[in-house]
Amino acid sequence: MKNNDRHFSGIHHLTAVSANIRENKRFYTEDLGMRLVKRTVNQDDTSAYHLFYADKVATPGTDLTFFDWPVDRERRGNHTVTRTALRVKDDQSLRYWQDRFGSLGVGHGDLTERDGRLYLDFEDPEGQRLTLVTDGGAGDAPTPWEGSTVPAEHQLRGLGPITMTVPNLRATDLVLQKVMNLRPVRTYPDPESPAHTVHVYEMGEGGPHAELHVAVRPDLPPAHPGAGGVHHVAFRTPNEEQYHAWNERLNQFGIRSSGEVDRHYFRSLYFREPNGVLFEIATDGPGFGVDEDMATLGEKTILPPFLEPRRAQILAGLKPID
């Protein structure tokens, strides 16, 4: 396969930061109706939970994940991911969610149209900036979870466009196009500052599940990481053959990376684009059923094999979240 024929199929997952993981679990499972599909720890900091929320079977592209770190709130700015979209099927679902947020006291904006789609912006209790967007049924079909607090027809269908904010586009654009093979397809005015522009890049077959939006905001200060902020965004590659090829491609371009990392549930490769946003390339498999019955996903703390010998020590350092 030629380098220019290799493309990501969409967003794999997004990982953010919470300083109140118990309330985080309540919000995402109860208010948003997502399933906790993996209760594990940060493999590089085992004092912290790493929680994964998704559809019933943790379909790649539906995962929203959180590190449990006792840090101050994020100071907003550029050089980071600034909004995460979650997909619903149609306008009827958006109105359902608008009513649901009102009844639950979840802070949200009005239904607004931008970039040719209808959006509903909202925030989680720690200020994580989220939005719902209609996808018209595009993307891999998720598997509804019968244990959700949300009716199947209105459940979240997975990740939508991810918006990152940078002060200057040029170097980022070079990496997105020349290294990652993303395609620039259109622009629209930044809804938070209409004098500035958001540039839309798509991957794979395109669609809201396969878009990265880049807002160019030189007027903002650099963000300071913290709770309510995003740690990294991951892009989907289907198998290990292409995963190895992406590692070779980064090396060919002289881009520093983590090298290949086995996360047990998928294979990972991390690097920073020129404005400092942390990207991950992740394989679709082997998936979360590799060490847990799919019927009981997320009910107990699971550790990858290399951490099992330290189970007692690790669990003793975790706080209860149920």
Score class of each variant (00 low, 15 high):
Met1Lys: 14
Leu14Met: 06
Arg22Ile: 00
Asn24Val: 06
Lys25Asn: 13
Arg26Cys: 02
Arg26Val: 03
Glu30Ser: 10
Met34Phe: 02
Arg35Cys: 10
Leu36Asn: 08
Gln43Cys: 10
Ala48Gln: 14
Ala54Asn: 02
Ala58Tyr: 01
Gly61Cys: 00
Asp68His: 04
Gly77Ile: 00
Gly77His: 01
His79Met: 09
Thr82Pro: 00
Arg87Gly: 01
Lys89Tyr: 11
Ser93Ile: 03
Gly105His: 11
Gly109Asp: 00
Tyr119Trp: 14
Leu120Val: 00
Asp124Lys: 04
Gln128Lys: 10
Thr131Gln: 14
Thr131Tyr: 12
Leu132Lys: 00
Val133Met: 10
Gly137Leu: 01
Ala138Tyr: 08
Asp140Val: 14
Glu153Lys: 13
Glu153Leu: 12
His154Ile: 04
Leu156Thr: 05
Ile162Lys: 05
Pro189Ala: 04
Glu192Trp: 12
Ser193Thr: 11
Ser193Asp: 15
Ala195Phe: 09
Ala195Cys: 09
His199Gln: 05
Tyr201Pro: 02
Val214Phe: 09
Pro218Trp: 13
Pro225Trp: 01
Ala227Lys: 00
Val230Lys: 03
Asn239Phe: 04
Glu241Ala: 15
Trp246Gly: 11
Ser258Met: 09
Gly259Ala: 06
Asp262Asn: 15
Arg263Asn: 08
Phe266Thr: 03
Pro274Arg: 00
Ile281Val: 15
Ala282Tyr: 01
Gly287Arg: 13
Gly287Pro: 15
Val290Ser: 14
Asp293Tyr: 01
Leu303Met: 00
Pro304Leu: 03
Pro304Arg: 05
Pro304Lys: 01
Arg310Asp: 05
Lys319Gly: 09
Pro320His: 04
